[in-house]
Amino acid sequence: MRSSQTLPLFPLHAVLLPGAALNLRVFEARYLDMVRECGRNGSSFGVCHILAGGEVGAPATPAAWGVEALIEDFDVGPDGVLVLRLRGARRFHVGSTRVRDNGLVVAEVSWCEPDSDDELQPEHGLLGTLLEHILEQAGGEHAGAGPAQLDQAAWVGWRLAELLPLSEQQRLCLLQENDPQQRLERLLQWIPDFDVPEQEL
């Protein structure tokens, strides 16, 4: 773990993953204030999966692991609600939390070490092939991924975690794993549970 930092949290019923994009509607005063503060200070906030509670109303109980959210873009929807385009960045571990008077949860977090740039191991080659087929069929922002990315263990693991029909608990499990190879091993174990057409393998 790296040095600790105070970070405002946005608990969600979803798990934001490193490198993944997320559109987030913001309408509660505590989160609008948080976004303004991030804009003024050039700072970021964290997204954590909700363990107990809801996304609106009383402060929710966040998971102990989360991901830094960087604001890439913003817009105002037809209903006048602010919509943020977020990008998952660094992983962090929550040490302690407190709730501000406005209901915003603020945490002391320790940053996780960046993923190593290990290459895909032969026993995980199936996962690289699967991701390539998914990107060919689904398109999207990662459709143009080249051989270098498709051979990078961490990148393949996070993109599969993003695109496969995992439960949020499974994504949270991967988020807590520091070793990219171990994340791939977990994904490999879960593959038989997915309805993946044989020709994709």
Rank of each mutant, 00 (worst) to 15 (best):
P11F: 11
I71N: 07
L164S: 12
T129V: 05
V156D: 01
L84Q: 05
P8G: 05
E198T: 14
G19F: 10
R171V: 12
D151Q: 15
S96F: 02
P18K: 12
I71L: 04
M1H: 14
P8N: 01
D151C: 13
D75T: 15
R171C: 08
L150D: 06
H49C: 11
A58C: 03
I71K: 03
C173K: 06
F45T: 11
E28K: 08
R98L: 00
L163R: 14
P59C: 00
W190Y: 10
E55S: 10
S110T: 08
I50K: 14
E132V: 05
V156K: 02
T97V: 09
E141L: 11
R98T: 02
P78A: 04
A60Y: 13
L51E: 09
D195V: 10
W158N: 08
P11R: 07
E200C: 10
A145G: 12
Q169T: 14
P192L: 00
G146L: 10
Q176Y: 00
A21K: 06
T61N: 00
P11Y: 08
H142A: 08
Q189K: 02
P165D: 00
P59V: 01
L24I: 13
H13F: 04
P180I: 01
R159G: 12
N102K: 11
P62I: 04
L51W: 08
G54E: 07
A154K: 02
L70T: 15
S3M: 04
L22F: 14
R30Q: 08
S167W: 01
Q170Y: 08
A138K: 05
C112G: 05
V156C: 04
L175H: 10
E119P: 13
L164V: 12
L201W: 15
V94N: 03
P180N: 03
G88V: 05
L32K: 13
R171Q: 07
P11D: 04
I191S: 02
A20T: 05
L131I: 14
G128T: 02
R87K: 15
A145C: 07
R91W: 11
D73G: 12
A161D: 00
E198S: 14
A89I: 05
A107Q: 09
E185Q: 01
V35G: 12
L12E: 02
F74I: 00
H142L: 01
R171T: 12
H93C: 07
P114T: 03
Q149N: 03
P11C: 09
E185A: 04
L86R: 14
S167F: 02
V47I: 15
L201H: 15
D75C: 07
G39M: 01
V105M: 07
W155L: 04
E37K: 12
A138Q: 06
F10A: 07
E123Y: 03
A58G: 07
G77M: 00
P197I: 04
V105N: 09
E68P: 13
H93A: 12
P192W: 00
Q137E: 09
V83C: 06
E136R: 15
V81S: 09
E132F: 08
D179V: 06
D179A: 09
L160M: 00
F27A: 14
E119Q: 14
M1Y: 11
V56P: 07
L130K: 04
P165C: 01
D195G: 06
L86F: 14
E68R: 15
H13T: 11
R40M: 13
L12S: 12
P197Y: 06
M34F: 12
L120P: 07
G95T: 05
G125S: 05
R25N: 11
A145D: 05
R30D: 09
N41L: 10
N102F: 11
R40N: 15
G80P: 04
P114V: 03
